[in-house]
Amino acid sequence: MGTMATPQVPPFERFYLMHRDEVLGYLRRLLGARAEDAWQETFLRALRAYGRLEHGRHLRAWVFTIATNVALDELRVTKRTVPQVDLEPAVELQRDAFRELEHLTGALPPTERAAVVLRYGYDLPYAQIADALGSSEEAARAAASSGVRRLRRTHERDH
């Protein structure tokens, strides 16, 4: 038992105002022009489930999870598995490096794209990215890592 009181679920309006803009930004990065429909679907799904939430912890990660599911559905990703075994060493990016490569994320496979954007665009920890992708933490890390390598290769090829 922790000593911190469990945060209560805030009124939906408060949750919505806090997250609506960044969720739209995230979906733009994943879906481009198709983001608005996905954004509305994300918050409708959130609202459908909202009354059953038991506490107000990790709501940001929760709404990113819903948004990721909507986006991957939209991208018709039927096979959600991400590489479980990654023989290459994990790579991480600095924030500045991500800004430089960000415009290339659209070319990544959807799960890698989601993993990279959640990690570097929104600072989500891998445990929460794993929830969003419905995968293990190792798989989430591998997806981001593989995405980063792909971004670098594309970047080098273009320069």
Partner: peptide, 23 residues
Amino acid sequence: MNVTTELDAQFRAAAVAEGLVDV
């Protein structure tokens, strides 16, 4: 990336129309 007034209004109307709002 800000949600436009129009998109915001659209969501609120859809939420009410679907009967998802308590109050």
